[in-house]
Simulated scan of single mutants.
Amino acid sequence: MQLQSLQDKIVLITGASRGIGHAMCLLFAEKGATVYAIARNADLLDKLSAEAQPLEGEIVPLPFDITSASDVEKNVQYIADKHGKIDVLINNAGLGHFAPIHELTVEQWDEMMNVNLKGTFLCTKYVVPHLTRRQTGHIINISSVAGTVTFPGGGGYCTSKFGVMAFTDILTQELKPHNVKVSVICPGSVQTYFGQTEPKDYSLRPDDVAQIAYQMAAAPEHIILNQVIMRPVVPQTK
Results as ranks from 00 to 15, higher is better:
Lys9Cys: 11
Ile13Gly: 03
Ile13Met: 01
Thr14Arg: 00
Gly15Ser: 10
Ser17Arg: 02
His22Asn: 11
Met24Thr: 12
Met24Arg: 01
Cys25Tyr: 02
Tyr36Asn: 05
Arg40Ser: 14
Leu45Asp: 03
Ala50Pro: 00
Glu56Val: 12
Glu58Gly: 15
Ile59Thr: 01
Val60Lys: 03
Thr67Ala: 03
Ala69Tyr: 09
Ser70Lys: 09
Glu73Val: 01
Tyr78Thr: 11
Ile79Asn: 04
His83Leu: 04
Ile86Met: 03
Asp87Gly: 05
Ala93Thr: 02
Ala93Phe: 05
Ala93Tyr: 03
Ala99Asn: 15
Ile101Phe: 14
Ile101Cys: 04
His102Met: 11
Thr105Pro: 09
Met113Asn: 11
Leu117Pro: 07
Leu117Val: 15
Lys118Asn: 15
Leu122Trp: 01
Leu122Cys: 06
Thr124Tyr: 07
Lys125Leu: 07
Lys125Arg: 12
Val127Ile: 11
Val128Cys: 09
Ser143Cys: 09
Val145Trp: 00
Gly147Met: 07
Thr150Phe: 06
Ser160Lys: 04
Phe162Lys: 04
Phe162Tyr: 15
Val164Trp: 09
Ala166Pro: 13
Ile170Glu: 10
Leu171Phe: 07
Leu171Gln: 09
Thr172Val: 00
Glu174Tyr: 07
Glu174Asp: 07
Lys181Gln: 08
Val182Thr: 15
Val184Asn: 14
Cys186Thr: 15
Pro187Met: 08
Ser189Glu: 10
Ser189Gln: 13
Asp201Lys: 02
Ala217Lys: 13
Ala217Asp: 08
Ala218Glu: 13
Ala218Thr: 09
Ala219Glu: 07
Pro220Ser: 12
Glu221Cys: 10
Glu221Asn: 13
Val233Trp: 13
Val234Arg: 10
Val234Cys: 05
Thr237Pro: 03
